[in-house]
Amino acid sequence: MAERPTLYTCARSRGFRATWAAEEAGVDIDLRMLPFPPRFLAPEYLELNPLGTVPLLIEGDVRMTESCAIAHYLATKDGYTDLAIAAGEADYAAYCDFTYHADATITFPQTVYMRFVLFEKDKGLQEAGEAYAKWFWKRLVKLEQRLESREFLCADRFTVADICCGYALVLAESVGLDEGVPENLKAYRERLRARDGFRRAWEREAAGPAAI
């Protein structure tokens, strides 16, 4: 019997995308929780991932460190599921675009804001961090317009694109960035939170075993 994929992550981090995708896809993973930030609080983790970042997925020779890529992998590794959109299917291009958009355009300014406003206040760069908050809010326009007349981002169904973009909206609320989130995106976020897969993943991370 093949070993289960092992996922190393920190609670509520970008790795939540992978935990959530596993629950939605019905993939049995070995979930291992790390303290944040692991590069300082669990230095032995660097032996597994020299970057010191989360998530990290290991399955045989497979080693992956990008949360959106891991979510897509878990949704397709045993064959395409409804969580992913295949080439030739309607909205395939939109699925690829929004899945990459999640980290490249939306989560990036959030991480800069968090670094300088929440984690490294002593560096005196809070003004720069606040500027990235405004950047984040402006970059939500693409999601806002896309969801004006639809429930989910692609193909009229819930997909990995929703997991990847939806996580950024969940993160926004938890780190003090909700002020500039449009109302239709807040409603979208609540629809995602109501999913059984989301709730199972949230609870599983809270109760997950320590990795190290």
Rank of each mutant, 00 (worst) to 15 (best):
A71C: 01
L147D: 10
G176N: 02
H72N: 05
R191G: 12
L169W: 01
P182W: 12
R146V: 04
A86M: 15
M114S: 11
A86E: 08
C154E: 04
L125C: 04
A104R: 06
A155G: 10
T105H: 12
F136E: 03
T99G: 01
L192C: 05
A133L: 13
T99H: 05
R193G: 09
G176Y: 02
A161P: 13
W135K: 13
F136K: 06
L185G: 04
L192W: 01
R193T: 09
H101G: 00
D61Q: 14
V175I: 12
D78V: 05
R193H: 12
V62D: 03
R146K: 10
C165H: 00
V181F: 07
T65E: 08
V117A: 11
L56I: 11
P109L: 05
A131W: 05
R146Y: 03
D156L: 11
L74T: 02
E120R: 09
I85A: 02
A133D: 03
E190L: 14
A161S: 06
Y167A: 08
E179I: 10
A90M: 08
Y167S: 09
D82L: 05
V112L: 09
V62R: 06
K134M: 10
A84G: 01
A86F: 05
R195S: 08
A172C: 06
Y188T: 05
K121Q: 09
E151D: 15
W137S: 14
G129C: 07
I70L: 01
D91R: 13
D162E: 00
V160D: 00
Y113D: 03
D122G: 14
F152A: 07
A69G: 11
P55K: 04
T81M: 05
C68R: 12
P55C: 08
K134Y: 00
E66Y: 00
T159A: 02
T111D: 01
E151Y: 11
Q145F: 10
R146P: 05
D61M: 11
C154A: 11
K134E: 13
W137E: 09
L125K: 15
I163C: 07
V170Y: 13
D91Q: 09
C165R: 00
E130F: 10
N184M: 02
E183M: 08
E130Q: 15
L74V: 07
E89C: 07
G79D: 03
D97F: 11
D78N: 14
E179P: 06
G88F: 01
A69W: 06
C96G: 01
T105W: 08
V62H: 01
I70S: 01
L169M: 00
G180W: 06
L57K: 09
G166R: 12
D156F: 10
L140Y: 05
M114Q: 09
V117D: 03
E173V: 05
Q110C: 04
S67T: 07
I85Y: 09
E190Q: 15
Y73S: 09
E148H: 11
L171F: 06
K138C: 12
F136Q: 02
Q145Y: 04
Y80Q: 15
D97Y: 03
F152D: 06
K123T: 01
A168Q: 04
R150Q: 14
D91V: 15
D178W: 09
E148A: 15
I58S: 09
Y132H: 12
A194P: 15
